[in-house]
């Protein structure tokens, strides 16, 4: 195998356009810095706040030996069977529905993502942006349908969807139009599936998430449309003004981590005035839909709002 002996040379030639750039180095340094800051904050909490809380708890136990601390019911913990959770891929987490751990508030958020009998979820690729079909509405009203953004050039099975230069789909017929959704075009598109106009939300697919300098607010253009927010396992915020404020915090503070997804059983559901919802996966301080984003500010503000 003479060729194999020359693999180094050949690979360097044929992959010569792929280089580690200064931009990648900058992204690495920023991410490391952020992780180190977070670690330092956790350490501060462990050294200062946690002992104070323990002391407070001890004091409470001395003062209230019966164990009545103002709540009549201890928090309950419910969870999906372990095996069931482990079997779920991240992209199907949204389909799990009710989520692992809760205390006094339990969420009953169900997944919004559509599946198909073939096991490949219904997708649309629009010039490098990818959209996954969602369950509701089963038919988009004509008043919500915006301008056509192009016709599906190729009806194909998934691997070809990674061709970023065309409009392709595994569920919309070639030649059918893809439309913007009025007022929410950055997040949703619509197209006909089995004769009905269906709604699709922007997601990551095959390593493709944001394009160029897109931010979270570009892929989730929902400001001004939010009615309520809920995170399964944490609770809901139904005051639209507070929900709107929280959402602004999310899009303003979120920092991009990667084009992948996260393993989690928790979801953020964003309920909109139009009667539709968008969804992101949530794990600790990270959220994912079109890319993985880190936003501790949002999660902490959301928890405070739920507890008020």
């Amino acid at each position: 195998m003479k060729n194999l002996e020359q693999l180094r040379e050949i690979a360097d030639r044929t992959l010569g356009g792929l280089n580690a750039t200064p931009e990648l180095r900058y992204a690495i340094q920023m991410k490391a810095l952020k992780q180190q800051r977070r670690k330092a904050q956790t350490l501060v909490f462990a050294k200062i706040a946690a002992p104070s809380l323990c002391a407070l708890l001890l004091l409470s136990l001395i003062l209230f030996p019966s164990g009545k601390l103002g709540t009549s019911n201890p928090p309950s913990i419910t969870s999906l069977p372990l095996g069931q959770l482990q079997d779920k891929g991240a992209e199907d987490v949204a389909l799990i529905g009710e989520v692992a751990v809760s205390n006094t508030r339990r969420s009953s958020e169900s997944g919004i993502w559509a599946s198909s009998s073939t096991g490949s979820f219904p997708l649309l690729g629009v010039n490098g942006r990818y959209y996954r079909m969602i369950v509701s509405p089963s038919s988009v009203s004509s008043s919500s349908v915006g301008q056509s953004i192009g016709k599906v050039q190729e009806y194909t099975t998934e691997p070809s969807l990674s061709d970023t230069g065309i409009i392709s789909s595994n569920c919309v017929n070639a030649g059918d139009d893809v439309y913007a959704y009025n007022g929410l075009s950055g997040t949703f598109v619509c197209a006909k599936v089995n004769g009905e106009l269906r709604l699709f939300q922007r997601v990551s697919f095959n390593g493709h998430a944001t394009i160029a300098h897109e931010s979270l607010s570009d892929t989730l253009q929902l400001s001004g449309h939010i009615v309520s927010l809920s995170i399964s396992g944490i609770g809901s915020v139904s005051d639209s003004a507070v929900a709107e404020e929280l959402f602004s915090k999310l899009v303003q503070n979120a920092s991009y981590e990667s084009s992948g997804s996260i393993q989690t059983s928790s979801v953020l559901t964003i309920h909109l005035k139009e009667g539709i919802s968008a969804q992101m996966l949530v794990s600790d301080d990270r959220l994912a839909a079109c890319g993985v984003w880190s936003c501790p500010e949002f999660i902490s503000a959301f928890k405070s709002a739920v507890n008020q």
Binding site: L15, G16, G17, E91, D92, E158, S204, N206
Partner: peptide, 21 residues
Amino acid sequence: AWFKRVILGSPVFELIPAPDQ
């Protein structure tokens, strides 16, 4: 799971040569 399910088949391996190649 994400990679297996999202790729749903083998990705097309494309070469990325330097411009002069």
